[in-house]
Write a protein that binds this DNA or RNA. Structure first.
Lengths: 351, 351
DNA sequence: ATGAAAGCGCTAACAC
DNA sequence: GTGTTAGCGCTTTCAT
């Protein structure tokens, strides 16, 4: 099917070593020989096999990338960042998705090891106690986590606890006291757990009692009954909801409106991730924004350093924690005392 | 660094052939031998090298994927579809992005050829007259295009012309007559050109005169002056805009509102792509929706067939054209005669 | 049931 | 400047 270095050698009447030189160190060759070889290469559509090369032992210039899904723009963005940075260093990406499933994580990493990737960048469900990662450590395959937030391993992320605390503080500063946190599955995301800690911190710092977190199914059309129960009493219900990610926040907002509650007038909603499209919603989503592309980029930089690649600014240390920001948006509003709200509502209702 | 089949052989006191059999045809081995070998494999963290295997000549079980960018959810979605389908056939993805740049397209395909991918799935800027693809044809490397819309090559897409025509027809059926089409760069997208044809068809079929298309910079904050000029005369300005993709539509809607025009009251806007988040906008984006994940999935199925992979439903032909749908949304509204509009505005304005 | 050896496409050490 | 050759990790005859 493909022509080989031997075909080219035969075609141009030289040895395979000469062809190899034409490819790798053309300056060592006689100009005529070089021209002749190049002609043959052209004529035979020869394209050197990375396989043969890689077998000779050096690097494969392949990085494995493991992400839960591309349906979540957060990961699509960070993949974009990894791709940009790795391409610039002439590395290629081998992509595997896991759908947050640990069996798939295992298979992904096995595959990548078989492919002899030089290193890998991964986002895993649980970064703390993860046998797969321990094994990578043991065998010495360099890896960097992206988005996972742990001090035990090389991991590029925002400080999820502080980011959540800052987000919730923004709610508290607006006078909210009854803030409830909603999360997807904690089991699937160590980050969600840290965000809950941040929520707790903010509440306790303000002398408030945190609610237990409410875990929600991501794909539900309607809001869960448990949440509706929480919302039934207008005087005691939470005045603000903190959602562990933007997708959840959008689902919740839709559900709230469906249930006849106005956001942010009746209830404020804050998301987490800062996905770009959130800003395009008619009421722009308030969210704790994370620099996803930069997370990908920096994950690569860490990996590149571990791989011993030449570094543009070798002297500096590359951060593991990247800054988050609270994107105010329009789905959070100052808390209004029920009395004041009633008063305000009587005179002029429709504006 | 990595242990090899030879290490395992030495460790367990057998030949490398036996180790190879333990890996590939364990049933041929004596149970005890097998157990012994497996122990050694375990002990040495041995993981067979795909490189060595692939060198023996067969398939690499690698597919190259070439997309313009992952920042556009359309491609992230179709990549997701490719990934799901290819993984199911135990194929791995090698990802390259091109930013619509033909030099990068060239490098991407070269890289992928060097990696000896068994085939590739690509979305290119120009599918019709593309030397790169011609070369692939010549050397016999199987490929399938995704999203590109051409009869000259294997390409999975919606019928862009008809899809655009149907979308514009939906506007015309609502009484609009002055419909203007906005597009990103035509040079970057053969699809945009087909969509303009569809627009023309719809207009001409309705006995209307198509406008020239207006090309717009994607990253502009403000609307282009040329468009603003078009919009200056309330009585003659277009009453509906057809945008060649959703991203553009969202930018335009924002710009229109910024310019004091209400969508859809003053002007209707129709997008193209049907990106999921469009439905989440407060006024849900009206759009011609394309089944992106399915496009990826089907592109894989075509490729798989070309690769001679076992096929679940081998008998059936796999479609190249997938159905589009016009997602009505809320950014298009029936046309109202200026007179009627004036009349309607006088009595009761704020609702 | 197992081993010996050839060979896949390439690079690099060593000759000339 | 160019050729010869060994060997990278594996699979696969062909023997035994």
């Amino acid at each position: 099917m493909h022509s080989t270095i031997r075909d080219v050698a035969a075609h141009s009447g030289v040895s395979i070593a000469t062809v190899s030189r034409a490819l790798n160190t053309p300056e060592l060759l006689n100009a005529e020989t070089l021209a002749k070889v190049r002609e043959s290469i052209e004529a035979l559509d020869f394209m050197p096999s990375a396989r043969g090369r890689q077998l000779r032992g050096v690097r494969t210039r392949l990085v494995g990338v493991v992400v839960p899904t591309l349906a979540n723009p957060v990961f699509a963005e960070s993949l974009q960042g990894i791709d940009e940075a790795a391409s610039a260093s002439d590395y290629r990406l081998m992509l595997m998705t896991t759908a947050y499933d640990s069996a798939r994580e295992r298979r992904a990493i096995e595959t990548l090891r078989e492919q002899r990737v030089d290193g890998l960048i991964a986002t895993v469900a649980d970064a703390e106690s993860n046998p797969l990662l321990d094994e990578l450590d043991r065998i010495g395959l360099p890896y960097v986590l992206a988005h996972n937030d742990t001090a035990r391993r090389a991991a590029v992320s925002v400080d999820n606890r502080r980011a959540a605390r800052d987000g919730v503080s923004a709610l508290l500063q607006r006078g909210h006291k009854r803030v409830l946190m909603l999360a997807g599955s904690f089991a699937e995301s160590d980050r969600a757990r840290l965000r809950y800690l941040g929520y707790e911190n903010a509440m306790l710092d303000a002398g408030l009692t945190p609610y237990a977190p409410l875990e929600m199914d991501f794909n539900a059309e309607e809001l869960p009954l448990e949440l509706l129960a929480h919302l039934s009493d207008p005087l005691r219900r939470p005045t603000a909801l903190f959602c562990s990610n933007d997708r959840l926040a959008m689902i919740v907002i839709r559900g709230l409106r469906h249930a006849g509650l106005s956001v942010p007038r009746d209830i404020s909603v804050l998301g987490f991730d800062g996905i770009p499209l959130g800003e395009w919603l008619s009421t722009a989503l308030s969210s704790v924004a994370t620099p996803n592309r930069e997370i990908g980029r920096h994950a690569w930089r860490h990996l590149a350093r571990r791989l011993g690649l030449p570094d543009s600014d070798a002297a500096n240390l590359i951060p593991f924690k990247l800054p988050h920001s609270v994107r105010t948006g329009a789905t959070i509003a100052p808390y209004i005392e029920p009395a004041a709200r009633m008063a305000a509502l009587e005179p002029e209702n429709p504006a």
